[in-house]
Computed example of a mutant assay.
Amino acid sequence: MTFSAHAIVIMGISGCGKTTLGKGLAEATGYRFVEGDDLHTAENVARMSAGIALTDDDRWPWLERIAEELKTAREGDGRVVSCSALRYAYRQLLRTRSGGPILFVFPKLSADIVRARLRNRPNHYMPPSLVDSQMATLELPRPDEHVLTIDGDADPARCVDLVMSYLSTVPETPRPTFSHI
């Protein structure tokens, strides 16, 4: 892998495949996988379980915990983290506080597919009723961000292969580009 990122953040709304892709990428890269949902407070989980959308005030402390996790990733001890990172400001916080380059990967899906996935996902606190609020909060990556957008409905193994292929071809210093596969 030639890309110098010490961390990969799989971003997007709940149900887009962040965890599945993250685990696959962690295995492929040898990086440690961190489930961002596990870093939410009990209060945030209770709010979402009750169908109450999180506010920025709810999210900032969670994002700080994720940034700290990313900061611990050193060369040879990288991280793949699942984190919605829905807004540009959230991604910027992670970039500035992590202490190094991050590749953001965005498995993009329609709200209808995500709702169907959430209805069929057992034992998770995020109800399908929050998809609309997540879609409303989502700020699509800007052209100047370093975000790799992939088809979130593609086979998970294919998604891992696409990201790994991308990682093997990008320069050591990340370019501020928007890629769409």
Rank of each mutant, 00 (worst) to 15 (best):
S133G: 04
V9N: 06
P156T: 08
R142A: 14
T149C: 09
E75P: 14
R121L: 03
D161Y: 07
L86C: 07
R175Q: 15
S82A: 15
A154M: 11
P122W: 05
D155E: 06
D112S: 14
E139Q: 15
P101M: 10
A136F: 08
H40V: 13
P107W: 03
H40L: 11
D38A: 15
T96M: 12
I66F: 00
V131N: 10
K108I: 09
Y125V: 00
V9H: 02
W60V: 13
A28F: 09
A50W: 06
S98L: 10
G51E: 04
T41K: 04
N123A: 11
A46M: 07
R47W: 08
R117P: 14
L25F: 03
V114Q: 00
G152D: 00
F106G: 03
L93I: 10
L25Y: 01
D161V: 09
R91Q: 03
A50E: 08
T55F: 04
S179R: 11
D57M: 08
H146Y: 13
L63R: 11
S49A: 15
Q134T: 03
P141E: 01
H146A: 14
S129R: 00
F33C: 07
L86A: 09
D132P: 10
I8S: 09
A7L: 06
D37T: 02
R32C: 12
I52F: 11
R91L: 04
D151K: 01
P107Y: 00
S84G: 00
T55A: 09
A111K: 00
L167R: 04
R95T: 07
L167E: 01
K23A: 11
V147S: 03
Q134I: 03
A5K: 02
K23R: 15
S129M: 04
P143F: 12
G12A: 00
A26Q: 12
G51S: 06
A28E: 08
R79K: 13
D57T: 05
A42C: 05
T41G: 04
R117T: 12
R142V: 05
R115Q: 12
T41W: 04
Y31I: 05
L70A: 05
L86P: 14
S179F: 11
P128Y: 08
G15Y: 03
S4I: 05
L86K: 09
S133R: 04
D38L: 13
G24R: 02
A67L: 08
L130R: 03
P122M: 07
W60C: 13
T169H: 14
P128M: 10
T29L: 08
P143S: 14
V160E: 05
V34Q: 12
A46S: 14
L167W: 11
N44W: 08
I150H: 02
E172D: 14
M1A: 15
V45W: 06
T55V: 05
S14N: 12
G78M: 01
R32N: 12
V105C: 00
A46I: 02
K23S: 08
R115M: 09
K23M: 13
V80N: 09
L54C: 03
L21H: 03
A26P: 13
Q92V: 12
M48D: 00
T55K: 07
A154G: 06
R119Q: 11
L130W: 02
D57G: 07
L39W: 00
M11H: 04
G100S: 05
A157V: 12
